[in-house]
Amino acid sequence: MLNTIKTLTAVRAISGREKAVSDKLLKLIAPHVDNVRSDAMGSLIAFKKGTGKDGERKSRMLCAHMDEIGFLVTFIDDNGYLRIAPIGGINFVAATYSLVEFANGTKGILVPESGTAPADLRAEKFYIDIGAKDKKEAEKKVKIGDYCAVEGRVERLAGKRIAGRPLDDRIGCAMLIKIAEALKEAPCEDDVYFVFSVQEEVGIRGARTAAYGIDPDSALCFDITGTGDAIGSKPMACSVGGGAAIKIKDASVICDVEITEQLISLAKEKGIKYQCEILLHGGTDTASIQASRAGVRAGAISVPTRYIHSGFEMLDLNDVQAGISLTLAWLGAK
């Protein structure tokens, strides 16, 4: 598991520019499924045919987003500094003085203009210093429209806990890979679509067209969720290590009640550690899938995570494993 996570977090793929991670995912999932394609927006869609009879099989969509938050270069000034636009919800306090990586390997430091007050930290106040002498040298390494993101890394902490970025949502992608692996050993009756969606961080966009194309009978989303267990965090009955988080609602969606109930009873039945999640802010692909065509029954399993959108998102691999087990139980259930 950790190796898969490390592979997936090693490449930069901001929203709208997901090719690098898409290529990695293609390699990882292809051996376990019947076919893989990309849709017009770039979401990667892998298909695994079920063992049920034709006409009796339902289609189930499992979705995790593969994009991450980052920056787009909008301007290169005469001194070779880069100006940027944020892609996705950047936490600038966390990003200040971070090392950023470009697709071609160029590195730079994300720096706020000298004297910027902490409350004033927003995109316009930042520039990237790639160490170039002047504009000419900078343009050899970077051009307008190139993108970068804070470096990817994963560190093991105590127990089964890890920290790094972008675990949002490469952890979901890794879960899908593991589920596909497991299904190869023990296939389920229904058809399963594994969707690695694009552009979640900029407005849950990719899952929408993917779901439209697939038109599934039901769907589960895999993403991270906030917790109430850090010092000073707002009360939330969800904690790292508390088990797979079965989403009840977030700001974008109220999950299908039947799917939620089904997940809870499966977890109880199989003795899988779980908790219920009500996230008051933030949205997930679940909303886009639910709103597709004439509506899709959709639920979500989240990984409780602290310090979201920072350089060190922290989660517990036990929760991840619980989520995988629960999903396999769901896929096996009618």
């Binding site: 849709d39 787009l72 944020p86 966009r205």
Partner: peptide, 21 residues
């Protein structure tokens, strides 16, 4: 090339129609 990320237009709605444009 537009140098700044701002505003929006019909492109967004069009992009996410059907299976994507």
């Amino acid at each position: 090339v537009k140098k700044y990320v701002s505003g929006g237009n019909d492109a967004g709605n069009v992009q996410r129609c059907g299976v994507g444009v």
